[in-house]
């Protein structure tokens, strides 16, 4: 029994050490990435190309999901509000839910699943096929040529994708609420104009999505760069990217929400 407990404790300790080591490596890697960012000013083309591929990868799923989430919000919100005779406030409910919460969070989760996993796989494959090593031997630094542009593209794309998600979502809510359930369109928009505050709500939502984008892009490029250079290693890297990003985003969302909106 005691031996069993000892074994468990030792395993826990080993796991803790490994996790700590990884976190350390990840932090050093992030610093190296940030260090390589200024160099991109000379070569904006690299970032634009990545921005394009990250954006194109994610745009469809962001638009479709945003639409559906907005429509569900419209239905659910209406059903609740109509009990209080407040169904004319549907616009505010939909808009606030999206801008403050669902836009940044769901867009980040989708981003991790679509663009993050593909970034990790791409970098991991470049490592497994010695492309990164080959670049180093050609005296080209993979940090500035491969990692930094992808990281920056992720950070920049996230707020845009979250904004698109929210806008399309509000459209979905409008379609259901106004088109299907008979909410007054004038009330829908004017309530949004009235009650959604640019600083309180929109700016805080943007801050969230910037933080999530930073974390999602960091995890994706790090997992790809740090993977074991085998097909199994690449596979694990993509899975871990999605899992770790999702957990990190949800955890951070709680912290940020508490800081921003909790009194």
């Amino acid at each position: 029994m005691l031996e069993w407990l000892g074994d468990r404790l030792a395993a826990l300790g080993r796991w803790g050490l490994a996790a700590g080591q990884r976190l350390g490596r990840g932090t050093l890697f992030l610093l190296a990435t940030l260090w390589a960012l200024p160099g991109l000013l000379l070569r904006p083309g690299l970032v634009v190309a990545q921005l394009y591929s990250v954006g194109v990868l994610s745009l469809l799923i962001i638009v479709v999901s945003g639409g559906f989430v907005g429509m569900v919000l419209g239905l659910q919100g209406y059903n609740t509000l109509v009990g209080f005779g407040a169904e004319q406030s549907l616009g505010v409910v939909v808009a606030l839910s999206l801008v403050r919460e669902l836009g940044p969070v769901v867009a980040a989760l989708l981003f991790a699943g679509r663009a993050g996993s593909s970034l990790a796989a791409e970098i991991g494959l470049m490592k497994a096929t010695e492309q990164l090593s080959g670049m180093e031997m050609m005296a080209v630094d993979p940090m500035s040529r491969v990692i930094a542009p992808r990281f920056l593209a992720g950070v920049l794309a996230m707020p845009l994708l979250a904004a698109i998600f929210s806008v399309v979502g509000i459209g979905g809510g409008f379609a259901v609420g106004v088109g299907l359930l008979g909410v007054d369109p004038g009330a829908f928009w004017s309530q949004i104009q009235d009650k959604v505050d640019v600083f309180e709500d929109v700016a805080n939502g943007v801050i969230k999505s910037v933080v999530f984008g930073f974390v999602a892009a960091w995890i994706a490029v790090f997992e790809g760069y740090d993977c074991r250079p085998t097909s199994e290693g690449v596979n694990r890297a993509t899975t871990r990217t999605v899992v770790h990003t999702s957990l990190a985003v949800l955890g951070l969302d709680f912290v940020l929400t508490a800081l921003m909106f909790g009194e």
Binding site: L125, M126, T129, E130, Q131, S133, G134, M135, M137
Partner: peptide, 11 residues
Amino acid sequence: GMLFQSGALLT
């Protein structure tokens, strides 16, 4: 110049 076993061409 280094020629890697796999070629290591940028895909």
